Amino acid sequence: MDSLRRKQIRLITAESCTGGLVAAALTHHAGSSDVTEGGFVTYSNAMKSRVLGVSAETLASFGAVSQETVREMAEGALRQAPEASVAISVSGIAGPGGGSDRKPVGTVWFATAVKGKETYAEMRLFPGDRTAVRTSAAEHALLLVQKRLET
């Protein structure tokens, strides 16, 4: 939080499987309004498209849990929040169902978008039940923001 404040950075979140846990973690701290612009919880594909501008083609070709989708989610969040300069997006399979051989339960994609820079995406596979996956994903999202701001 302090590094965001020092750099006068405002953050926006775009979440699916974490359901707002990243935004909740940010706003837990007093003074978070200095750095937190807000957050989008876009659980359905329709909301990802309607609110964040994720293309129907991307969702049909790659699915909601993909590098392509989280990139578009993060970039869309920045477009929707012009005061923000950094966005973090999260989409994954928290379980217990919904997994496949290609995308098992615990698969989570993340993207960070920074105005004027290339969007970065990465995937992690988290162990545990639904609560553990969601919690780990939210924690990792915050670490990614921190790492992204160090570069």
Rank of each mutant, 00 (worst) to 15 (best):
M1S: 11
D2Q: 15
S3W: 14
L4E: 08
I9L: 13
R10K: 10
A14Y: 14
G20P: 11
V22R: 08
A24V: 11
L26N: 10
T27Q: 10
T27E: 06
H29N: 13
H29M: 15
G31D: 04
S33L: 01
D34M: 12
V35F: 14
E37S: 13
F40G: 05
F40M: 06
T42K: 07
S44H: 03
S44P: 00
A46Q: 08
M47D: 09
K48G: 01
K48R: 00
V54G: 00
A56Y: 11
A64N: 09
S66K: 07
T69Y: 06
R71F: 14
E72T: 07
E72F: 13
E75F: 00
A77E: 03
L78C: 03
L78M: 03
R79T: 05
Q80Y: 10
P82M: 00
P82R: 01
A84D: 00
S89G: 06
V90N: 06
S91H: 02
P96D: 07
G97S: 13
G97W: 15
S100K: 13
D101N: 13
D101C: 11
R102S: 15
P104Q: 00
V105Y: 00
G106V: 01
T107F: 09
T107I: 07
V108P: 03
W109L: 07
F110C: 00
A111M: 02
T112S: 12
T112K: 12
A113G: 05
V114T: 15
V114E: 14
K115F: 03
K115E: 03
G116T: 05
K117D: 12
K117H: 13
E118P: 09
Y120E: 15
A121M: 08
E122Y: 08
E122L: 09
E122W: 10
R124P: 02
L125F: 12
G128Q: 03
D129E: 10
R130I: 04
R130H: 03
T131A: 12
V133F: 03
R134G: 05
S136H: 11
V145G: 07
V145P: 06
V145W: 04
Q146S: 15
Q146R: 11
E150V: 05
T151S: 12
T151W: 15
